[in-house]
Nucleic acid binder design. Structure first.
Lengths: 158, 158
DNA sequence: ATTTACAGGACCTCATTGGTCCCCTATGGT
DNA sequence: ACCATAGGGGACCAATGAGGTCCTGTAAAT
C-alpha cells in the first residue's frame, strides 16, 4: 500500500500537539507521551530525530523539553515527512536514480517524476498550522466537523 | 518511505507496454517479460491480478494472452494502484477506520483525510495514455526529453 | 551533587514485499 | 482425440524494513 510509516504519522501528531499550545515553555517527552497516548520510547525517539533535523529545539536538564523551532505556519507536512522518512517519491527512481535496472528502457519514467512532484507539492502546501485542531488549547470540539482551511490543497483537487 | 510497491510499478510498466501497441491481438506473458525485461513469474503474477480485477482481458490457450479491457485513456494510474495494492491513503485511518487506537482523540485526522483525497485525485487524473511514450508503437525516442501532457497534474502544482 | 531530561545508538521482532514454483484448466492446432 | 500452449490460483520462501524497547552517556538546573 502507499503509506507513510506510523512513526511519521506519530511525529506529525506530536508536532501538532506541540503547536497547539505555543507557549514558549518546552514540553518534555513524558508529558507529550501522556497527552498523545503514544508509548514513551517512541515519543522520545521521534522528538530526538525532529530536534536533530532542526524542526524542534531541545532544552536539556531539569525543566527541559522540546519546542517548535518555527511557527506552525512555517512547518510543512512535506518537511516533516522528509525529515522522518527521507525524500518523497512513489518510485525508487525518484529518490535513488541509477538503482533500477529498468531505468534505461523504462518508458514511464518521466511522467512518474511529474507525479512525484505533484505529491511533493501537495504536501508542501499543507502546514502544521492547518493540521492543528480548530480550537487551539482546548480539546474535543464538534467531532467530524472541524473547520480546516487547507485552501491550496482543496483547490488543486478540482 | 512513502512508496508504492515495486510490483505495482512493474504493473504500470506492463500496462504501458500493452497500451503502446493497441492492436487487438493479445500478448502473452512471455513476450511481455522479454519486452520489459522483467522476470516472467512476476509478469505472470501481475497480469493475472490485473485480469482478475478487470483491467485486462485474458485469452487462454494457444495464441492466448492479455489485452487492455479499455482504451489507455480510460485507465487511470489510481485505478491500477488500487487494484494492485488496495485503497490509496497515507494513513491507516484513511483505509481502515477504527483500527487506530488514537483515532478518538487524534487532532489531525480530518486534515489527513483531505490530504489523502488530494493524492488520490492527482493519481486519478493521470491516465495510462499519458504514461505511454510519445511515439506510440516505436521505441527509443529522444531520451529524457519526451513530450508528456499531464496537463491537469501540472496545473495543480503551484 | 544529584536529579531531570535529552542524545545517540544498538538491538529485537514481526509483517510485508518481492519473487519463485507448482498444479490445474481452458483453448487452438494437428 | 491429442497435445502443446497459455492463463488461473495458489502456496511458499527469503529478505528487507518498520515498529518498538532499552541502555549508556551528557547537559542543565537546583
Amino acid at each position: 500500500m502507499i503509506r507513510m510509516s506510523k512513526l511519521t504519522d506519530y511525529g506529525i501528531v506530536l508536532l501538532a500537539e506541540l503547536g497547539s499550545q505555543h507557549d514558549a515553555a518546552p514540553h518534555n517527552a513524558r508529558e507529550l507521551s501522556l497527552r498523545t497516548h503514544l508509548p514513551l520510547p517512541v515519543v522520545s525517539k521521534l522528538l530526538k530525530a525532529l530536534a536533530r533535523e532542526g524542526v524542534l529545539l531541545s532544552h536539556r536538564g531539569v525543566k527541559g523539553g522540546y519546542s517548535l523551532s518555527r511557527r506552525p505556519e512555517e512547518i510543512s507536512v512535506a518537511e516533516v515527512i522528509r525529515v522522518l522518512e527521507g525524500p518523497i517519491a512513489l518510485t525508487e527512481c525518484g529518490t535513488h536514480p541509477g538503482l533500477c535496472a529498468q531505468e534505461q528502457l523504462c518508458q514511464v519514467r518521466t511522467p512518474w517524476q511529474r507525479i512525484n512532484e505533484v505529491i511533493r507539492d501537495a504536501l508542501s502546501q499543507v502546514t502544521l498550522a492547518e493540521l492543528i485542531a480548530p480550537t487551539p488549547g482546548s480539546r474535543g470540539g464538534p467531532p467530524g466537523d472541524s473547520f480546516v482551511p487547507l485552501d491550496r490543497v482543496a483547490r488543486s483537487s478540482n
